[in-house]
Design a protein around this nucleic acid. Structure first.
Lengths: 72, 72
DNA sequence: TAAAAATGCAAAGTTAACTATACATTTTTC
DNA sequence: GAAAAATGTATAGTTAACTTTGCATTTTTA
């Protein structure tokens, strides 16, 4: 799943380490999620969105799941 | 983490099985999430919220995480 | 331009989300 | 009131999120 984390970090000049500490995970976790190696948990997604004062839907891109929705 | 899934299901008279099928998980997964045995993944949270035409934040209760937010 | 900070990336280990199966109890429907 | 549907709960197994460690490269700062 795609997300805007790297983009939001750069806009606000926040390093991976600072974000990682703020949301209580390791830098490696932030990196992995940024590059799409895996998807954030719901709690982490919320913490990240909240850190940027955005909703989860504004940070994470669910458009690749819409297909399944339309298949219902 | 708390959520409004059982409540939303009952309002709309949708069984666990029907919801499970609609969001591509087993009934056991829905049950476990409803009773708080574990937290939904981000993708599943999105699918469930979307099924009810709500945002993730409207279905899942993150208030137990606010503490951490305020500690920043 | 050297030092410090930030990023990239990789691998092994742990934990939590989810599946599959199964059976007992409760609720709904006919 | 019997059958069918829905729910509760439990357990063993798989997969994916996340940690930990470590080191190499790039970018920033003094």
């Amino acid at each position: 799943m795609k997300n805007r984390i790297a983009e939001l970090r750069k806009e606000r000049k926040i390093s991976q380490s600072v974000l990682a500490d703020a949301v209580f995970v390791t830098r490696q976790t932030i990196t992995s999620i940024e590059v799409g190696k895996y998807t954030a948990s719901l709690e982490l997604a919320y913490r990240i969105a909240n850190y940027f004062n955005l909703s989860i839907e504004e940070v994470f891109d669910f458009s690749d799941l819409e297909v399944l929705k339309n298949e219902r």
